[in-house]
């Protein structure tokens, strides 16, 4: 395994959040204009993971477009997605796993929702709390451990 050209590309995900983007030009999560991400930059090793990740503002804009085209649910999804740009791949996988049937207790889901809310993902937190309530009613929670 060479790993050539991969130096100096630590992801900033989850650290201080994305750079703000004001202009109309599409910017990556890192704040870098997408137009500047070309083969020369790749060749020079100047393209990092956050240069290839979507910015939450872009997802917000796409949400507006979706709502304007008759699909408020797609818009809501894109807004939840905008929040999830702020958490790491590992955390995304972790939340998904926790939401699968019989994986979590009600308390664990409550804690997960709180963590999401604290991580800048209030819409996703709401989704998790909603899941918790339905799971409790439909028997989809993890059976409580014997003491």
């Amino acid at each position: 395994m060479t790993g050539r050209g991969r130096e100096g590309r630590e992801s900033a995900e989850g650290a201080e959040g994305p750079e703000n983007t004001e202009s109309t030009e599409v910017r990556a999560y890192s704040g870098r204009p997408v137009g500047s991400i070309d083969l020369n930059a790749v060749r020079r090793g100047e393209v990092g993971p956050d240069d290839l990740r979507i910015h939450p503002d872009v997802l917000e804009r796409q949400a507006i477009v979706a709502a304007e085209h008759g699909n408020p649910q797609l818009a809501a999804n894109l807004r939840r997605a905008a929040e999830l740009t702020r958490i790491s791949d590992t955390d995304v996988m972790r939340v998904y796993e926790a939401l699968r049937p019989h994986r979590s207790t009600a308390d664990e889901l409550t804690a997960l929702a709180a963590w999401l809310a604290a991580s800048g993902c209030p819409l996703n937190a709401t989704l998790v709390r909603e899941a918790r309530d339905v799971y409790a009613r439909r028997g989809l929670l993890k059976p409580a451990q014997a003491p």
């Binding site: 999804n77 939840r80 997605a81 939340v95 998904y96 996703n124 989704l127 899941a131």
Partner: peptide, 26 residues
């Protein structure tokens, strides 16, 4: 049906989250 859905090891909420997860990475 709910039973087949959960036999598939998912719920509407886990799938909805997955849907957003994909979108969050573009």
């Amino acid at each position: 049906t709910e039973r087949v859905f959960t036999d598939g090891d998912d719920t509407p909420w886990s799938k909805a989250f997955l849907t957003s997860a994909y979108a969050s990475r573009g």
